[in-house]
Amino acid sequence: MSRIAADHGLSEQRVADGLARMRADGMVRIRTDVARSVTGWPVYAWYFVRTPARQIQQMRQLMAQIPEARTALAVASQYNLVVAVWLREMTDVMRFEAALEAAVPSARIVDRSVVFRMGKHLGRLIDEEGRATLGFVHPFTP
C-alpha cells in the first residue's frame, strides 16, 4: 500500500480505507498466484469464442461462477470473448468446450489453445516445475 500511496500522492491510510471499501463492495478481490503444477489444475487452456454481442455480459457472468475459469475478456476481434481456464487433465479441454457451448447454445468456440509451459509470468522467470524464480524480466522482453 505504501507504494500505491507514494505513486499517487495519497496517505497510506487513505489507500487502505479505499481498498477496504472496494473489497467490501465486491469491486476488488484479492488473489495470489500459485504454480499450476501444485494446484491439481495443471492444464491451462484458452478459448476464443464468438457469441452474439447481447450475450457477452451473460457469458462473463457465467464464467465468474465457474471455478475453472481464470479470466473472461470481451475483445474487439474476430472473436468477441476470450476465456482462460485451468483444467485437471487434457481430456477436460473438450469436456469444458462442450459444457460451455451447451450452457450458451449461440456461443461458438472458434479456436482454442493449450499452454504447455510458460517461461515467464507477471515479470517473473518460471522454472521447469512452473514455479517463479528469483529472476525478473522486463514485461516486454520476449
Results as ranks from 00 to 15, higher is better:
P67L: 03
V115I: 12
A99N: 11
A107R: 00
L87H: 11
R108C: 06
E128T: 08
R95I: 10
T32A: 14
R60M: 09
A74V: 05
M27E: 15
T133E: 04
A99C: 07
M94W: 12
V28Q: 06
A20F: 02
R112F: 07
M90L: 12
Q57Y: 07
T133I: 07
A6T: 06
Q57W: 08
I30Q: 12
V93L: 10
W46A: 13
A69K: 02
M118W: 08
A16E: 04
L122R: 13
M1L: 06
R88N: 13
E101L: 00
A64P: 04
R50D: 12
L81S: 00
T133A: 07
Y44D: 15
S113Q: 14
A103V: 09
V28E: 10
V104K: 00
Q61K: 11
S11C: 02
V110Q: 13
R21P: 01
V82A: 09
R70E: 15
M118D: 14
P67N: 08
A103W: 01
P42E: 11
A24E: 14
A5S: 05
T71K: 10
M63P: 02
R95V: 15
Q78I: 06
V49Q: 01
V75P: 10
I30T: 15
L62K: 01
A35F: 04
I30W: 09
A84M: 07
M94G: 03
G135F: 05
V82M: 08
A72H: 06
A102E: 14
A72Q: 01
I30P: 06
R50A: 03
L100R: 00
L87N: 03
E97V: 00
K120A: 15
T71A: 15
W86T: 06
T91P: 11
A35C: 11
A5T: 01
T133W: 07
R108S: 09
V137D: 07
L62E: 00
M63Y: 00
A20K: 10
G130L: 06
E129W: 10
F96G: 01
I56H: 04
Q58K: 10
A6V: 01
P67H: 09
S2Q: 07
A45P: 07
T71C: 14
L81T: 02
M1E: 05
S2G: 05
R14F: 06
V83M: 12
R21Y: 05
E101A: 05
T91F: 04
V15H: 01
D25V: 04
G9R: 00
V82K: 03
W41N: 09
V38P: 05
F136M: 12
T39P: 11
R108K: 14
P142R: 10
S11N: 03
Y47H: 02
S106E: 15
T39V: 15
H8S: 04
F116C: 14
V114Q: 08
T91Q: 12
R117A: 15
S77V: 03
V104Y: 02
T51L: 14
G40H: 13
